[in-house]
């Protein structure tokens, strides 16, 4: 019987096959699914984030770790849903209108999933109406926007304005990120939070739903 601790190593090293196998075995052995997430997967992704910040990991390593985490989540999520565990929150995430950069956004989406959120990924080049639609139809309570271009940053402000106009601004917390974004900018446009990296994004989202 594989030690569930090995799940941590499988995620950190980006080994999706082992990650899935260990998870399946652990579940068969009666380990609590939420415990697998909280005790092994979340700490593993924290470690991956730390290595990225320290220039030990780069984008390819981040992406395979995220994939290993997702492989485990695929079998864990249905169990959580079946027993009635509610997701921590429901996030509508997307790269803003005019912007096609999605590597950072994808990582944030994966980590949020790992952190227990239900993630509705709207992709790239997302117009404000799309966010509004998802708030209304799928009860998203967090809107997460990514922008990598200084020319598309203003679309974050426009989206927030559009949320206000549509009368849904109070239903959601708005989180923003991407290389050119700063806390100062987040404050200026009235976003609820900013984080410079994906690990921080999860902490931010957790604080946002707790508030």
């Amino acid at each position: 019987m594989p030690d569930p601790k090995l799940l941590y190593d499988a995620v950190v090293s980006g080994d999706a096959k082992s990650s899935l196998a260990i998870t399946q075995q652990a579940l068969a052995d009666g380990v609590d699914p939420l415990q697998l997430v909280n005790d092994y997967m979340v700490p593993a992704m924290d470690e991956v984030g730390r290595r990225f910040e320290a220039n030990e990991y780069f984008v390819p390593e981040l992406l395979i770790s995220a994939r290993a985490m997702k492989a485990a989540l695929e079998v864990i999520r249905p169990l959580l849903v079946a027993r009635g565990d509610k997701p921590v929150g429901r996030v509508a995430i997307g790269t803003v209108k005019g912007d096609l950069h999605d590597i950072g956004k994808n990582l944030v989406a994966s980590l949020l999933e790992g952190g227990g959120f239900e993630v509705i990924d709207l992709g790239v080049n997302v117009p404000p109406e799309k966010f509004i639609e998802v708030i209304n139809t799928r009860q998203a309570n967090i809107v997460a926007m990514s922008a990598l271009l200084t020319t598309t940053m203003p679309a974050m402000r426009t989206t927030i304005e559009a949320l206000k106009k549509a009368g849904v601004r109070d239903k959601v917390k708005v989180l923003i990120g991407g290389a050119p974004i700063t806390q100062k900018y987040a404050d200026e446009i009235g976003a609820d939070g900013y984080s410079e990296n994906a690990v921080g994004a999860v902490a931010l989202a957790k604080r946002a739903v707790a508030a």
Partner: peptide, 10 residues
């Protein structure tokens, strides 16, 4: 596709 290529390395 850049996202795919990044994992192709492995």
């Amino acid at each position: 596709g850049i996202n795919t290529l990044m994992t192709d390395f492995f």
